[in-house]
Design a protein around this nucleic acid. Sequence first.
DNA 1: CTACATGCAAATAATTTGCATTAGC
DNA 2: GCTAATGCAAATTATTTGCATGTAG
Lengths: 142, 142
Amino acid sequence: MENKIFQNFLEKKGLKLTKERIAVLKEVFSFHDHFEPERLYLRIKNSDSKASRASVYRTLNLLVESGLVEKVTRTEKSNVYEHTFGHSHHDHMICDRCGSITEFYSEKLENLQKEICRSNGFDGKSHTLEIRGYCNKCKKIK
Amino acid sequence: MENKIFQNFLEKKGLKLTKERIAVLKEVFSFHDHFEPERLYLRIKNSDSKASRASVYRTLNLLVESGLVEKVTRTEKSNVYEHTFGHSHHDHMICDRCGSITEFYSEKLENLQKEICRSNGFDGKSHTLEIRGYCNKCKKIK
DNA sequence: CTACATGCAAATAATTTGCATTAGC
DNA sequence: GCTAATGCAAATTATTTGCATGTAG
């Protein structure tokens, strides 16, 4: 399904569906987790398909443009991505101790944001909410 | 006032209050706006005090550690900071067209987040909420 | 066949760091 | 005086890009 979407996206832009792009797409959708470009590259390297680091970066940009993948955060180091197709919108809680990421979703929160946009005359398209602190496990230790 | 806080912070850590650190602190608090390290460095360069790029970066890290400055991280390129002392918590709306940043604050939003943390067993310390879209001006053009 | 894509290695860009020198406390 | 800070330039890290060659449509 995501293959179809990506293919349409490429076609519309006059771009080609190469094996490298397929490899990246396949790998991205083979697990649901947050990942950095480098990690993705290594996973692909260890799989049967192949793609260079450059192609991974290039394809990742296309995937974001197509809406199939989103940038979650820009951490101290690299960017963090997640695939979004087939996985509805949510926000993140990040533990400052163990780095674990917990997803959550709140209808109320979404509505409240819409309301805030409205009263500010802002045409909101998307948002990222990131709560930092200590997760259930780590708050006991800390 | 912020000088006093920074001084205490340094003292507690056995660090020194140098003219370079003073220059950075002064410049950071001389305007209220979001800024990147490079821009701050250039401002200092054009002022009467002086500090190298390296010192700007080093001092910025100390300022964040001390709580006087926060990272508003979320751009493609570099980190974005803002000084927080004397300026209460707020969130941001960023225009995807002109790049303008609008600040806002909502008590309801804060409470809702606390509630979400509680129900997830997460000990939330801080958060960043960023809404992207088109600002009042740009939504008419786009 | 003809764009566009690829891999590679070199280029960029932001930030950090090693080191010899300088300066707070 | 001792220890930490500075400036510089070189090092690092993540990401992008130029170019010669390969390949999808």
